[in-house]
Design a protein around this nucleic acid. Structure first.
Length: 520
RNA sequence: GGCAGUGUAGCUCAGUCUGGUUAGAGCACACGGCUCAUACCCGUGUUGUCAUUGGUUCAAAUCCAAUCACUGCCA
């Protein structure tokens, strides 16, 4: 089977984790679980970016040793990922395994002449850790954060980004899926067509960072340092003899999930670095949109930070995951309100999914003491509602493969929810309570089995999105197979009797509703 | 200032590339049905000058032009 390597950005530890961080990370986790369930060998990497001026300053303000400070700051991230059922590898840029690789890469590129010494002069914003051209500066203020900028002149190493731009341009043109969505791809194309300067990759004014080998008054620029995590996290080393076998197995990355704000670093500088190293480029860089509140970007300075922990406390991890994956188109901005979240939880999770499982459980108890009956599908089931259900379920795996290939999470969930609606409608149309009253036992057994097995399929479909709920359902319906093995599409449905997956006799229990309705 | 994108039902959006049956979905709302269920589910229905104006065409939400509003990237 194939391999799949997915990454999120590594998050800057100066922030407390917010919904934006969780958004990228959940998306990556869904992909990672999905491909695992298809039997791919999956590596999912997230982590934290812990170097840079801002971090050192924050530590100083707290009167703490910087390493100690970052050791503390990383904790809320790890805890949040645990709560959200994020199943990933984790890298910190202050780890030895990372720093060694950064230095080795720096050294290799310097020997190659791709990194050369020079002088950097310009307006610099300490907060953003970015230089800005004269034209963007108004009244000495940073165009991003409006803090004061300083004129800085310092020795610096430069990376010959410009060398690789023609090749990069060609690569982007020839690989339409390299930068997604398309609007971002156009942005990058027009940006590199306007001319790209070599980037400064070291600082002398900063101490907290990876030391430049052989020139220790320099520290490696945070972005150069940070991007390398995608390699160091899977055991890369420029010296092939020092590489971990994992690297060969997983590189190139199948998708880097990023926010649209860091597109240029990932779509221009990063590929240039990889070309300089002679490594393959990632297959896809997907820049998702921002979550907005009141139409504005969520930001600390505007006081619009939303703490994921609060929402998880109130609604649970799976409802959280479901809401953010279903509500927004991944490449576009999306407006967040808690009211919408409550609506979606009630309508989709409580009414549709939760109630489907619950009502089925009740009938199963009433008619069969909770033991899933053995169906006898007959000739007449070659058409009609039961077959419709089977066909619908049979189509889902391919839908999901197609949608998730382009990171369309909301369409994926919509397809699954369409199945859930059909199952609810199936109950209505077949009216098991009538069949029971009239003692049409064969028909009743067939309907109840179809429901139970339909729920089994739904549990497997939602597993990548809502692992806890899938587990709960799996247990509740008494399934014994592997929940985490994605059901494959059957090429042909000739005889429904060939399609008995959930074992008849399984004990389908009544349990607490999966998602209680939220009353406002 | 340059380039790009967006503007469709009360809300969130699909449809636009490759013009062509009465413009769709979900939510919300109204009515009806059902009763196994978490007052749930099922059915039916309402609402749209498809941003504006003009053009091309037998035919435009879809193509073209201009305008307005908002957004992004660059300067």
């Amino acid at each position: 089977m194939g391999k799949f390597y997915v990454t999120t950005p590594i998050y800057y530890v100066n922030d407390v984790p917010h919904v934006g961080h969780a958004y990228s990370t959940i998306a990556a986790d869904v992909l990672s679980r999905f491909y695992r369930s298809l039997d791919y060998d999956v590596f999912f990497l997230t982590g934290t970016d812990e170097h840079g001026q801002k971090v050192a300053k924050a530590a100083e303000e707290r009167g703490l040793d910087v390493q100690k400070h970052v050791d503390e700051m990383v904790v809320p991230f790890k805890e949040l990922w645990k709560r959200l059922e994020i199943d990933s590898g984790f890298i910190r840029t202050t780890e030895k395994r990372h720093e060694i690789v950064v230095q080795a890469i720096f050294e290799k590129l310097r020997e190659k002449g791709d990194i050369y010494p020079g002088k950097y002069e310009g307006w610099y914003c300490i907060f953003e850790e970015t230089f800005y051209p004269e034209s963007q500066i108004e009244e000495g203020k940073c165009p991003e954060c409006s803090r004061e900028v300083k004129w800085v002149s310092e020795d610096s190493y430069f990376f010959k980004t410009s060398n690789y731009i023609p090749r990069l341009h060609k690569h982007i043109e020839e690989n339409p899926d390299f930068i997604m969505p398309k609007s971002r791809r156009n942005e990058v194309l027009s940006y590199i067509e306007s001319g790209v300067q070599d980037v400064s990759v070291s600082r002398t004014a900063i101490k907290w960072g990876v030391k430049v080998p052989g020139d220790e008054k320099h520290v490696v620029y945070v972005w150069f340092d940070a991007l390398i995590n995608y390699l160091s996290g899977i055991g890369y080393h420029p010296d092939k003899k020092k590489q971990d076998p994992n690297f060969k197995k997983f590189w190139p990355a199948d998708v880097h999930i990023i926010g649209k704000d860091i597109l240029k670093f990932h779509a221009v500088i990063w590929p240039a670095m990889l070309m300089a190293l002679g490594e393959d480029l990632p297959k896809m860089i997907f820049a998702h949109g921002f979550l907005t509140v009141g139409g504005e970007k969520i930001s600390k300075s505007r006081g619009k930070v939303i703490d994921p922990n609060e929402l998880i406390d109130k609604y649970g991890a799976d409802a959280y995951r479901y809401f953010f994956m279903s509500q927004f188109t991944f490449g576009l901005d999306g407006e967040y309100t808690e009211e919408t979240m409550i609506k979606r939880i009630n309508a989709d999770l409580a009414n549709d999914l939760g109630n489907l499982v619950h009502r089925t459980a009740n009938m199963m108890k009433k008619y069969y003491e909770g033991n899933v009956p053995n169906p006898k599908y007959s000739q007449s089931d070659k058409e009609g509602l039961t077959r419709d259900i089977k066909i619908q379920i049979n189509g889902i795996p391919n839908h999901l493969k197609r949608y998730l290939k382009v990171l369309d999470f909301s369409k994926s969930l919509a397809a699954i929810w369409h199945t859930i609606s059909l199952l609810n409608k199936y109950i209505e149309d077949m009216a098991p309570w009538q069949l029971h009253k009239e003692e049409r036992n064969d028909e009743l057994a067939k309907v109840m089995y179809t429901l139970a097995d339909g729920i089994r399929a739904v549990a497997q479909f939602i597993y990548p999105f809502m692992p806890q709920t899938a587990e709960k359902i799996w247990k509740q319906i008494g399934a014994t197979g592997d929940l985490k093995r994605f059901p494959e599409t059957k090429p042909d449905i000739k005889d429904l009797n060939d399609w008995v997956v959930l074992k008849p006799g399984s004990n389908f229990k009544i349990a607490e509703p999966l998602f209680p309705r939220i009353e406002e």
